[in-house]
Design a protein around this nucleic acid. Structure first.
Lengths: 135, 135
DNA sequence: TATTGTTATACTCTATAACTATA
DNA sequence: TATAGTTATAGAGTATAACAATA
């Protein structure tokens, strides 16, 4: 049987390639979308926490947040309890931008999973979520 | 439900991070292992065909094959039928190097899938192979 | 004219270390 | 002293175009 890593990497590459132009049409990079998605679930207590949540480097997150803030999609506020930290949250514009992008992304994902039956799709998504949550 | 792309990308990143040192212990990079794996199934009729088979750039494959050839793991032969093409195949040393690395990689994969039951693992691998084969 | 292999170049992405301000 | 955020820089990875040999 073929390697798990090879199959996964191939699928990810194909998905990224399909999603990239769709996100760009919304004015978002892949990492920008990842950040907005995380913030849509809940605001970040610090930039470091956000970096860990999306698996991104904290030093690169800075420039990304600069752009997102300038575009009016997120706001950074100093945490009154610990003035070293920045609380990061979506603006209303950020929320709607994310929702619009997500609808298109979701359509692409369903297309990718088209080779599977509806039941299999649910199973696959569920198993994937379990594996991704592990660490 | 969480994004498919985000879950997949996270799993791939985790798997790569775990596999990279294991492969390095065998003197292989991730792409070197991908190339050996493809050649282990069948020799490549051309470098271009190998590049497509593993989803790698043809211009970067050249340096990779230079290293693998110097290490005695693969050989390049001009195709007598089309002297532009190079047929690429594993040497006996390449075959055994790949088999040894693959055994270790397989153990890592089983570990990653540990959160799933044996039945689910089979289902997951099967669905993944179908999705990866699509294109 | 088109394709395979190749080289060179520029560009992006990523990792590391060092600095500041707060704690 | 330790941590959050920041900056700068070097290195790895990647994409693109151009060329020689062959078809």
């Amino acid at each position: 049987m073929t390697d798990l890593g090879a199959s996964l990497a191939r699928i990810v590459r194909r998905l990224m390639k399909a999603e990239e132009p769709v996100l760009r049409a919304h004015g978002l990079s892949m990492w920008a979308y990842a950040a907005l998605s995380s913030l849509a679930e809940r605001p970040a207590t610090s930039q470091l926490a956000l970096a860990k949540a999306i698996g991104y480097d904290k030093t690169r997150l800075i420039g990304l947040l600069d752009e997102l803030a300038e575009a009016g999609l997120v706001v950074r506020e100093r945490d009154p309890a610990d003035r070293r930290s920045h609380i990061v949250r979506l603006t209303p514009a950020g929320e709607s931008r994310h929702a619009a992008a997500r609808a298109d992304i979701r359509a692409l994902e369903d297309d990718l999973l088209g080779a599977l039956s509806p039941t299999e799709q649910r199973q696959f998504r569920a198993m994937l979520a379990r594996l991704a949550d592990e660490s």
